[in-house]
Design a protein around this nucleic acid. Structure first.
Lengths: 259, 259
DNA sequence: GGAGGAACGATTGCATACGATCGGCGTCCG
DNA sequence: CGGACGCCGATCGTATGCAATCGTTCCTCC
């Protein structure tokens, strides 16, 4: 089924509802913060941002409030707002929570796939998400083949978010999205991630979801996120490797092995 | 030291910065949603809320945007907003993620306590939070002694949030706060929680944090949250008890034991 | 009688304007 | 010479007004 068959049918309604919102001011500011255009500690007044993004103070104000509740902005009433500090010392904990989040979403997605095949449920947007994941997998493969690894981190995040949406839990999806932004911020701040080795795991994971094997999907996701966590800790030498003893041991082992 | 000695000194600056913001519109609406005053599915227009809380449309608008990003409001552009559905089918996953979150914050709080005693760090508001926890523990004890268990769930949440702040991770604290609101919503929606049995565990947990024993604090918190999760699942008979096999087995065991 | 289209009401999105509050700095008094 | 008081610029918080968009309803035509 071609992916462009259904969208023009319902038109802009379903379109705006779910996928392609026209990049709100909040998204634009967040993107600039993550990309490093707005550096931590920088003063951002409503007026300056309004001029920067060519809108009035009102949307900027709403965006700032949202970004403050997401932790990208530190705001003090009647004083001003600043770009928050990158949570580098939280990195390991962020990965630990991400593991729990993603294990739950992977298991939920597989469970929902099983329910779908047995006819218990008929989720409307399941197939749309499934096709989106397929497209993302193909796009990632193409980038890997071309040796262009930079877009991989963004595609990786989109796949994981799509799997979360596949699980049907809006709450978990929302939390994971916030966490992904933070981890992306961590990656972008220091060093470009090289996710080539972890990339092939995605297809195996999606296969387990399609098969409806919840436990296998959960185990694969746990290993996948844990590898990502170990990789981050290996690239950033921190004093305390990890709070999780198993992760810390693995980091120490590889560090001594690789020299 | 009486707790009302310092606030009038620096006045409203430090006051507003951290603790007692004058209950914003967003907090008021969220409170009403959790309390069931605004029921899921109810239409909420900016104008009606503005009249209800006696403010203009602009603060209502900001509050709605924030609540939408928190998942309490479903908003569609140019159409309107509705109170979101209570995430009952996510309950078990929410507890699983909460366990990971709270284990990380408990471990972090204990680690920070150890660093404090060894003189490595000197956190300014550590003692303030520690006193706040002590006051909350005493208040909870008083309620338990009086047999007034209703405020216990709120006090419980405040203790857990304070422990998260003690860990020093703003990101984890923010995620936990959002999760706590959702779980509180779950509890308030169906049945009043009876947390008397779990209450004494708090002092043991805080003791482990004070001792700087990170692993013990983490283990205690994991058991504490898991008990809470099992209790919820026991009170709400769901078809699939839990995604975690150990939790599911324990729920089944107690259910057959209690009849 | 049914289907397509246009106009209307309702609601949000944004811009502008004004009032309230805070931090900084000069000045005055002890 | 040091500290406290008061003024002032800066910034936020809120209110009001207008334009854009969506869902609906009614009208017309087939």
């Amino acid at each position: 089924m071609p992916p462009d068959a259904e969208p023009p049918r319902h038109g802009p309604l379903e379109e705006r509802r779910f996928v392609a919102r026209p990049l709100s001011v909040q998204d634009a500011i967040r993107r600039d913060i993550i990309a490093g255009v707005l550096t931590p500690g920088a003063r951002v007044t409503e007026a300056s941002l309004a001029q920067r993004y060519d809108v009035s103070r009102v949307p900027v104000r709403e965006a700032l409030r949202g970004l403050a509740s997401e932790g990208f902005i530190d705001s003090r009433p009647h004083v001003g707002s600043r770009v928050a500090a990158i949570p580098v010392h939280d990195a390991d904990d962020l990965f630990a929570v991400r593991e729990a989040l993603e294990v739950a979403t992977a298991r939920g997605a597989a469970r929902r796939a099983a329910a779908l095949y047995s006819g218990d449920e008929s989720p409307a947007d399941w197939w749309r998400l499934r096709r989106e994941i397929a497209a993302l997998l193909d796009a990632g493969d193409a980038h890997v083949a071309d040796g262009d690894l930079d877009p991989l981190v963004a595609i990786n995040d989109q796949i994981h978010i799509a799997i979360a949406e596949l699980s049907g839990s809006a709450t978990l999806t929302r939390l994971l999205r916030q966490l992904s932004w933070k981890i992306e911020w961590l990656y972008a701040a220091d060093v470009q991630s090289r996710g080539k080795r972890l990339w092939p795991e995605h297809r195996v994971l999606v296969g387990a979801i399609d098969a409806g094997d919840g436990e296998r999907a959960a185990a694969l996701m746990a290993a996948h996120v844990r590898e990502s966590r170990i990789g981050y800790l290996l690239r950033h030498d921190v004093t305390t490797p990890s709070a999780d003893p198993a992760v810390a041991a693995e980091v120490a082992r590889r560090r001594s092995a690789d020299g």
